[in-house]
């Protein structure tokens, strides 16, 4: 059928370079740089190149199901270069009809009842429950009621969950200013909320905080965007680095994704790397070094479509 979606193929190159002002004697790193396979995403090839060469490298799956690499370098070095090269195929998802989704209160109550122990618990709800509560970067408690207040303008009584979530994503996009200088990886959600500016990671954390404050399950998805847009289309924001967006759990439709930074639902130009409760679970590269004094990091990402005869059939 002509209308059936076609898989899009991409080459990804994710470079990270750390330059240290003093020698590093021992470095141990954990990387989330291997794109996760999912129903609508295939990983065709992947290579992780590390310089200097690690003395030990291991792959495993983390507790959210993401592939994760560990490596350590026990030789003296002044810089660390990590390059992840991957080829993936992405299929545009058919997102469910938002207007037909459950009223958001029903989704909230479903989750609450499932997790409150008054009845046997279904696996799907148990899995979703992991993303329902506070996490290190998105604390949930009495102090987060204002996120619920903020979201309530979109989450009108009886409104279908997915429609309300889309409205929230639009509202964040409209009211928050994209400003890479405003925040760092450690900026708390409260500050982003107060100053109305940040980057994709901040907007995603904020949207997750809003959804969880309402009693819904929401997770953080990290990934990439196509770097150069197809002719005639605008370039999407956040395309030179890792990108992040949000998935919300809907009892009848499963996980549905929203990108508040670009006010859209991811299609076949969003490539998934990993997901977790927040940035901390899927940080592309984190580690502990011995020595090194201070360091400067450079990150560069390129995503190019694979076309013509290079594309796998």
């Amino acid at each position: 059928m002509d209308s059936s979606p076609v898989m899009q193929y991409y080459d990804l190159v994710h470079d990270t370079i750390y330059r240290y002002t003093g020698p590093v004697l021992l470095s141990q790193q954990v990387a989330h740089l291997r794109p996760r396979e999912r129903l609508r995403q295939r990983l065709l090839s992947h290579r992780l190149q590390i310089g200097p060469r690690p003395s030990l490298q291991r792959e495993r799956t983390d507790f959210f199901g993401n592939p994760v690499s560990f490596f350590s370098i026990d030789r003296r070095h002044d810089s660390l270069a990590v390059q992840a090269v991957s080829r993936v195929g992405v299929l545009a998802p058919a997102w469910p009809d938002a207007a037909a989704s459950l009223p958001w209160e029903a989704a909230r109550d479903h989750l609450r009842d499932a997790l409150s122990g008054h009845a046997p618990l279904q696996d799907e709800a148990r899995e979703a429950g992991q993303y329902r509560f506070g996490s290190p970067f998105v604390a949930i408690g009495p102090q987060t009621l204002r996120y619920a207040d903020y979201a309530m303008q979109c989450f009108l009584p009886g409104r279908p969950l997915l429609e309300a979530a889309a409205a929230l994503s639009s509202r964040i996009h409209a009211e928050f200013h994209f400003d890479p200088a405003a925040t760092s990886v450690a900026t708390p959600v409260a500050q982003v909320f107060a100053e109305r500016r940040g980057v994709c990671q901040d907007f995603s954390h904020l949207m997750i905080a809003c959804l969880r404050a309402l009693g819904l399950a929401a997770r953080y998805v990290s990934g990439y965007l196509l770097t150069a847009p197809p002719p005639g289309q605008p370039r999407l924001v956040g395309a030179d680095a890792s990108h992040a967006w949000v998935a919300v759990w809907c009892p009848d439709a499963g996980w549905v994704e929203f990108d508040p930074t670009n006010d859209m639902q991811p299609a076949d130009e969003h490539i998934t790397l990993a997901w977790g409760r927040d940035y901390g679970d899927v940080c592309p590269l984190r580690g502990v070094i011995l020595g090194g004094a201070s360091h400067a990091a450079e990150v560069a990402v390129t995503v190019t479509p694979v076309a013509g005869r290079d594309a796998p059939v």
């Binding site: 122990g117 009845a119 618990l121 148990r126 992991q130």
Partner: peptide, 16 residues
């Protein structure tokens, strides 16, 4: 997590 599946302990007591 059999005890959660069986609904004998509320899952939110663990997850949260």
């Amino acid at each position: 997590q059999e005890i959660l599946r069986a609904g004998r302990i509320p899952a939110d007591q663990i997850l949260n």
